[in-house]
């Protein structure tokens, strides 16, 4: 390794260590630097950069309150595959709808170029999330995280290009196409790499049932054709697990599985509930948004401190 590379490596480490909260940096910087120095000795620029990014990722997780005394790490790691399967299954159901539409040419002809762009984006995103799910189930969490992040970044220019031509469909396009992908990508990045995946039969079963749950709203919409009935039901399907998870966190109940499912259900909330919320009276929308933010922040703080009451944490 040349002197330039050594200097570059330690410079990258200094930047990466800034991601840590001050107390954690003071406590762990020396040892992290020791491991990093040995791990990057003789390594190329790309390998050194990846090592520094991994250090920064650990620091950011600590800064967000993950990796502390509570079970936040475990819950995020268990929620991520469930959120991926929700995203993939909802995408598949949507594509099935598109295929049905394509079989009726008059309806397809009415779609403008912008809507076709959004459909193309949905197809691509679904393929990406199916691939991410396969990578997670086959024990390749690192590749799954990278693919999820790249796929989501790739969606932004496509949807932004289509937005001007969507008219009143802008809100639905953003909520259906971008927000769920963005949330799942962040969840994948937040989960510790060594805990990510669905290793146990119990985890795989949870993934399977979550996939089935993802289809519930579409089955309801298929069977019941009255929007005044389907809209409340479809919004409640995702609202219930998310609220239940919040209640469990606030009550400090040791229920990582249901809480993880509630976190994953945010994918459905973003896709189905947020558009309905935004369509409400602005005062209502603001009130609900502020109330939700306050409750989530309060629950988050309790979640982070979850281990302070002496509960054991299982792997």
């Amino acid at each position: 390794m040349t002197k330039d590379q050594t200097d570059g490596g330690s410079g990258l480490l200094r930047v990466a260590l800034r991601a840590y909260p001050r107390a954690a940096r003071t406590a762990h910087a020396q040892e992290l630097a020791a491991i990093y120095a040995e791990a990057t000795a003789g390594a190329g620029r790309v390998a050194t950069l990846r090592e520094a990014m991994d250090v920064a990722g650990h620091g950011l997780r600590l800064r967000c309150g993950l990796g502390g005394q509570g079970r936040a790490d475990e819950i995020v790691a268990r929620a991520a595959p469930l959120a991926v399967v929700l995203c993939a299954a909802q995408g598949l159901a949507y594509l099935a709808y598109v295929v049905v539409t394509a079989l009726t040419p008059p309806q397809l002809a009415q779609l403008g170029g912008a809507y076709l762009t959004v459909l193309l984006d949905a197809s691509g995103a679904t393929l990406v999330w199916l691939a991410v799910l396969a990578l997670l189930l086959s024990g390749r969490p690192g590749a799954a995280r990278i693919l999820g992040a790249i796929g989501t970044l790739g969606q932004f220019p496509v949807v932004l290009t289509a937005l001007p031509g969507l008219g009143t469909g802008r809100l639905d396009a953003v909520c259906s196409a971008l927000l769920p992908s963005l949330f799942v990508s962040l969840l994948l990045l937040a989960a510790p790499r060594d805990m990510l995946g669905a290793a146990s039969p119990r985890d795989r079963l949870a993934v399977g049932w979550t996939g089935v749950l993802a289809l519930v709203p579409y089955v309801i919409m298929l069977v019941v054709h009255r929007t005044q009935v389907t809209v409340p039901i479809v919004t409640l399907v995702w609202f219930v697990p998310a609220v239940l998870a919040l209640a469990l966190v606030l009550a400090r109940r040791d229920a990582a599985g249901p809480i993880a499912l509630g976190v994953a259900a945010v994918v459905g909330l973003l896709r189905f509930d947020v558009p309905e919320l935004v369509r409400l009276d602005p005062a209502w929308t603001s009130s609900v948004a502020v109330l939700t933010a306050v409750v989530v922040v309060f629950a988050w703080r309790r979640w982070i401190d979850g281990g302070a009451d002496g509960r054991t944490v299982r792997s």
């Binding site: 090592e51 991994d54 650990h58 510790p192 790499r193 060594d194 944490v313 792997s315």
Partner: peptide, 28 residues
């Protein structure tokens, strides 16, 4: 291949769970 941050996070978690302990500290 565990990278620095991932390894350190895993070791911290295993210490919290009581599965791993710090044997000693040394200066190299």
């Amino acid at each position: 291949r565990l990278r620095t941050g991932t390894l350190y996070g895993a070791l911290e978690r295993l210490q919290r769970e009581g599965m791993v302990r710090v044997e000693r500290e040394e200066v190299v």
